[in-house]
Amino acid sequence: MIVLDIGGLRKRFGTRTALEDVTFSVRPGEVFGFVGSNGAGKTTTMRIVLGVLSADAGEVRWKGTAIDAEARRRIGYMPEERGLYPKMKVGEQLAYLARLHAVSAADAAAAVTRWTERLGVAERVGDEVQKLSLGNQQRVQLCAALVHDPEILVLDEPFSGLDPTAVEVMSRVLRDKADEGVPVVFSSHQLDLVERLCDRVGIIAAGRMVAVGSVPELRSGGVSRIDVVGPRDWAGAVPGVSVVSEDGPHTRVELAGASDQDVLAAALAAGPVHEFTPHRPPLTELYKDVVSR
């Protein structure tokens, strides 16, 4: 199994602990969403994976061994701080970056053509990067992560600053790379996007991983809530249940000892029940719960 394993990473900057025992793995063909608030440790983790920073403890493993410079050259990376030579032409720059990843000149040229076409910046290859709009620079930046046909993708905030069309293109590209068997890790604050795109999600808070798993797994690990449409003002007195919200006939309760059948029975006792559904919280809500816990 060509898994990217991140195990027990610890990193301190002076007295501040940036990462403490950060552990998760990304499987081949999987899109992994890395979420957390600003300063939680996403970028630090990604930099350690790329070897741009060194960890104080822990290690990054790939193909079963500690990742080395040679293996890191097979990673496609998009740094949080976007960076390209502003005065270098798009095509030359992408070819140069591909060559630095040990791609032959001919393959580099072909990859530049392929990816600039795919990302819709093919007609700009002869322009200096600084002449492009920020959105197009972002597309070129993604090309830069892809031109050496990477076997792992690590992208720090790839969607920030993109228009909806570009978001679609970018999502498609990530999905396709994953379908080729490439582990894809990306960080984002757009949780709806992460939920839609990712097979699994890792949530980091204050340098620690607080949850890792698919969105349904995260839901099952969290508290159980039930939405009931029917009688009014019935839930307050039910034992083992706490009321999350009450709005006319709409009641949302959280199970705190009681079973869903207890809740149903109590609701029916108060009047006719029209809807009874387990609440499936979106990632945004799960995230808030997990982070505030």
Partner: peptide, 17 residues
């Protein structure tokens, strides 16, 4: 300084020493 200020250095150092 150009490589630092344009941040391209991080991309470069992810592949070469």
């Amino acid at each position: 300084v150009e490589e630092k200020s344009s941040r391209v250095v991080e991309l470069l150092l992810s592949t070469i020493r």
